[in-house]
Nucleic acid binder design. Structure first.
Lengths: 217, 217
DNA sequence: GTCTATATGTGGATAGAC
DNA sequence: GTCTATCCACATATAGAC
């Protein structure tokens, strides 16, 4: 693995662990056992590192979060989506811990982010419409866009929400399952007679996973 | 108004406008036309200021967000709540823009925050149960707590969500109405036959208000 | 209560040798 | 590509005069 990639990897780890604000370029370098000068040979500055991390994140999201084709197996696919999605959010959660700060210091990144989120909103809306077409949920067009927004908010800010409720501020693997349960509850609110048993089945599955190490949220 | 109160007021304004990270104690003092030394006469340090602001915020929330007594007029009261609540979130939104950072630097504040949020969650859950008792929504106990969490997430992170979607990063009065619409959509998902018309009425009201100055979200 | 002046520490970033 | 040394800017915080 190249030094450049190692810097990215180390930065993600340290940012997630201690927060982007608390981690300086010196911390990153010293943790890797390289000099600050070397770090600045590979990256123009700290924002440059963050931009690369964001590129990584959005690229992962693009490849994993492709719109569904078959509506009838919607919820089966949904599980896979949610697992991958929350796992991704967990791996890059520092970004949403400090979203405002990070974006306000980098105009270029902010533009990319806005564009990216607009595309994402459309995709989520399509997914919601897809579930409707498959008879899984009942929802009018107006609420479909509202639901898409709420899904985005819930997924994006789930990790900061959890961290703020815990003195240690640490995230656990189980938190992912609790997040998925929130999304399932959202879908269940719009579910049809036909789909409710499927959702309840999923809920039981993730409830069991979430309960393995934690008291109920 | 005392210098101490003016420092609080100025800090809130500058934090909201530029973010807590970007505003130093020198900025606050210089914007007020006082010396840094004077500021440090009134407050021990920057965190001391933030603690006072949080105390102000939680105090406002406690006095305004009292549980409902009469279930039958639930939605009428709900409107007043939501107006006051989102207005409050708007006035202190810098806090949620940087929640993780702010809490991670101040153990005492974090403890207060956690305690406060736990109490708030109970209150929101009571409100949800109250709406159910009044026949306004249909929801089982398990989903009631999930809904309470989602309401909290939506209200807490609504302003950072909106700011991240806008290049200027500025918030407008209309954003409040769009936030209220999200909460209404959440309630509508669980609404009974009886209450749907009431919610639709409220939705029309806030849609009109939100449309006054902005294109649709 | 308020000021001026300043100490202290530190983060971001660069120059130049190897 | 990597290191050492260092500069610059600035935020936090204090001392002591008024």
């Amino acid at each position: 693995m190249s030094t450049k990639d190692k810097i990215i990897k180390t930065s993600i780890m340290l940012f997630n662990q201690h927060g982007e604000r608390a981690i300086t370029t010196n911390h990153i370098a010293s943790h890797m056992g390289i000099s600050p000068g070397n770090l600045y040979y590979h990256f123009k500055n700290k924002e440059d590192i963050i931009r690369h991390i964001f590129a990584l994140y959005s690229q992962h999201l693009h490849t994993q979060f492709v719109p569904m084709a078959k509506h009838d197996e919607a919820f089966t696919h949904l599980t896979g989506y949610l697992d991958a999605l929350f796992e991704l959010m967990w791996r890059f959660h520092f970004f949403y811990d400090n979203l405002g700060d990070i974006l306000s210091r980098d105009e270029v990144l902010k533009k990319d982010y806005i564009e990216f989120q607009a595309a994402l909103l459309s995709q989520v809306r399509e997914l919601v419409i897809g579930l409707r077409e498959g008879g899984m949920i009942t929802i009018d067009d107006e609420d479909a866009i509202e639901l898409a927004h709420m899904l985005k908010i819930t997924v994006s800010f789930w990790t900061p929400y959890i961290k703020a409720r815990r003195l240690s501020g640490e995230l656990m693997q189980q938190d992912i399952y609790n997040g998925i349960l929130k999304v399932l509850a959202l879908f269940k609110a719009f579910a049809t007679e036909q789909s409710i048993p499927q959702i309840n089945l999923l809920r039981e599955k993730y409830s069991a996973l979430a309960a393995q190490a934690e008291p109920a949220s």
